[in-house]
Write a protein that binds this DNA or RNA. Structure first.
Lengths: 221, 221
DNA sequence: CGAGCGATTGAAAAGACTCAACCACCGTGG
DNA sequence: CCACGGTGGTTGAGTCTTTTCAATCGCTCG
């Protein structure tokens, strides 16, 4: 079931089941907050989460999205720092917390699990560095196109492959992923609509021309 | 000596010593190249290295610096991907390569070492995400100030605390750290000089007013 | 000495941001 | 049931930052 914790078995799984605590988070509720000390790691059972870091003058930057099967909060715990980001539910989500000690024991005792966590961190770091290059070198239009394609990858679509991207983000949220001002984001969305690359219905965005949007995204690599 | 490998001892240290291979790299020489398969990890014994990722239209973005005591190339190896970045020597450097298998064995057999590597990755990821926020939200001037302060942190200064930052970067390199065009970088450097915050001598940069530059940097956190 | 590369400067254009106003939708309370 | 207020979305105009293109300068290496 759970991508990273999937390999856990036997007595370790028991320890895990016993110590974990689960909870529900409604849209807008905070799972963990920037600046707080990490008490454990969070396994998303279902739902959608944004992880965002507050920067200059309160503006925040979304650095990651999570969905069912993903794990959150391990970076800060492993680095031995307070959280550098806040995790906020985008819709009703069920999330379990595995206490710090249980997680660390697991790492000590299970080499495969450690390996999984390292793979996870390495993947995240790779993505973060790609984002750095994008922010430094690509214009808003390209970054937006890439963001929409990535959101579709992560969250999928509703009712078939041509449906709307299955996540509800405000324009401000979207601007905070792309790294631009809300107004600029709105205008760029309008451009893409005018070119029939995407369509919007309420807050939902539908990709009409995947190939065209990919071209606009001008993806590096 | 070596920050991450410092805790290795006994038979593991022997295995490591026997399998590693060392080499010298002169300024401009490539240690490993974006796109290549990682054959091992690199321990910088001495010297200075830039790690850069090529992006849009050949422009590249420097994502990390390394010096003696640092380890490189573990991200790609752990993620099981080809290198996403190139490592290039900034000055004559001595670097050892620990073969892939030796490194992975070490991870399997030594829980503390695994833990060190996870801490390393977590720290890198934290830095990368901070850089993301900076690129998304701060103007060139602030990013440049922060970069200069960071370079001083990493590489130190020559002849006392008020000396020049101990690394030779071209204006283009510097622009590729800050994430801007070379011309913009040059102009911004000129601004900081005019304000007596820094001074330049050939390619070397000296920080004249650390407090003032810190203020300009407007560091988040 | 000349070629060439890196650094610098200037000027014009493009991209993105800010400020301000307006619109549309939604839930609330009268 | 409807008026109201509030929030989020959209649009316009002007400004500022940053980029781009072009030209010049200075130094170093053959």
């Amino acid at each position: 079931m759970n991508s990273v914790l999937g390999s856990i078995e036997g007595s370790e799984l028991d320890a895990l089941s016993q110590s974990k605590s689960c909870g529900m988070f409604k849209r807008g509720e905070v799972v963990f907050e920037q600046g707080a000390q990490p008490l454990g790691i969070y396994c998303v059972h279902s739902g959608k989460i944004k992880v965002h870091r507050s920067g200059d003058e309160g503006r925040d930057q979304i650095v990651r999205f999570a969905k069912g099967g993903d794990v959150l909060g391990y970076r800060a715990l492993l680095a031995g720092e307070p959280y550098a980001a806040t995790a906020t539910a985008l819709e009703t989500s069920t999330i379990c917390c595995i206490p710090r000690a249980t997680f660390l024991d697991l790492l000590k005792s299970d080499g495969n699990f450690s390996m999984d966590v390292m793979r996870l961190l390495s993947g995240d770091l790779g993505n973060a560095e790609r984002q750095i290059v994008n922010l430094a070198q690509k214009p808003v239009r390209e970054r937006l196109a890439e963001t929409l394609l990535a959101l579709r990858e992560v969250y999928g679509t509703e009712n078939g492959p041509d449906g709307a991207i299955s996540v509800q983000l405000s324009r401000e949220d979207l601007a905070n992923v792309v790294g631009t001002a809300t107004e600029t984001l709105v205008r760029t969305i309008a451009d893409l609509k005018r070119e029939d690359l995407i369509a919007t219905d309420k807050k939902k965005i539908r990709i009409l021309d995947h190939a065209g949007l990919t071209e606009v995204a001008n993806v590096i690599d």
